[in-house]
């Protein structure tokens, strides 16, 4: 089952890359995807049955919209801090607890945090994320946990878990 998934995904990638529907092209693409699936399947994610459930794609699209909005906000925020003559920065590293369980969900959360306003993930140890923040708004753990992970955690829980 995992072999078939990797084969289909790489064939789709090949067809998008060449964008030509002739017979030699499809044959060459099939051979290349066969080699790719033979080599790289044991490194791929293990639970592929979740790819077949359609409601996850619905939540993924909503998550994408939220993510792009946060991303644009991040850029305007950084622009304000860079162009301001006094440079209002107050950096620090804070520690945030997450409730997500699976590894892929933690990775997606960390990548989202990296692109949101003023935060970069420094490290991830078990359930705790260490985050470098360009302007520490409050010293209270509950407040900043809500500020950093609150926007994404519920969508990611619906997409992956």
């Amino acid at each position: 089952m995992r072999y078939i998934t990797v084969f289909i995904l790489s064939l789709i990638f090949w067809l998008l890359l060449t964008f030509k529907l002739t017979v030699p092209n499809i044959i060459v693409g099939a051979v290349a995807s066969l080699i790719c699936s033979l080599i790289f399947t044991r490194f791929f994610i293990s639970n592929v049955y979740k790819l077949l459930q359609p409601h996850r794609y619905f939540w993924f699209i909503i998550y994408l919209v939220v993510f792009i909005w946060e991303c644009i906000k991040a850029n305007l925020d950084v622009a304000y801090r860079v162009l301001h003559p006094a440079m209002p920065i107050r950096p620090g590293i804070v520690k945030v607890k997450t409730t997500l369980k699976s590894d892929l969900a933690k990775t997606l959360l960390a990548n989202s945090i990296t692109m949101t306003p003023g935060t970069i993930t420094v490290d991830i140890i078990d359930d705790y994320l260490y985050i470098h923040w360009i302007y520490v708004r409050s010293e209270d753990p509950e407040v900043y946990t809500g500020l950093i992970t609150g926007a994404f955690e519920k969508y990611i829980k619906r997409i992956i878990e």
Binding site: S10, C36, F40
Partner: peptide, 26 residues
Amino acid sequence: MTLIVKKTTQLIAGMVFMYGIYIIVH
């Protein structure tokens, strides 16, 4: 390296391989 790098590498390595084959064949 950390968990983030490992998981992303699992997703990207297949794409990089297919892209190399595309450059060679064309």
